[in-house]
Amino acid sequence: MVIYGVALLSFCMLVGVFLGDMLGEVMGVQANVGGVGIAMLLLLVLSNLGSAERKLSPFTEKGIGFWSAMYIPIVVAMAARQNVFSALSGGWMAIVAGVAAVSASFAMIPLLAHLGRGGQDDS
């Protein structure tokens, strides 16, 4: 049933966010540490559990697939609720700092990608 997929997804997210909050607590940081990442790993593990015959039913998969397909619209809504006005009226210093940080980080990607390439080839 579709709801099984949605419930599985919800379970993974809640467990992940809970563990991320706990991790932040333990590290003495006022932030969630890796909650979404933990949730993603959990979803991968749980959805691959068991043998081939115990695979998720197509309907269960639909419950997850729907939210995966809603990703772009949700991100568009996310863009529409950003505090863009305050970003642009924060003055030149904030803009220069943001632009410089992003440019440097972009430039770093090929360097690190090259470094971590090692023996595996997944291009």
Partner: peptide, 19 residues
């Protein structure tokens, strides 16, 4: 739009993409 684009739905959809 604030609810749909808030961190709750955003993170939910991100986790779903891992499938």
């Amino acid at each position: 739009v604030g609810v749909l684009g808030g961190s709750m739905f955003r993170d939910f959809a991100i986790v779903a993409t891992a499938f």
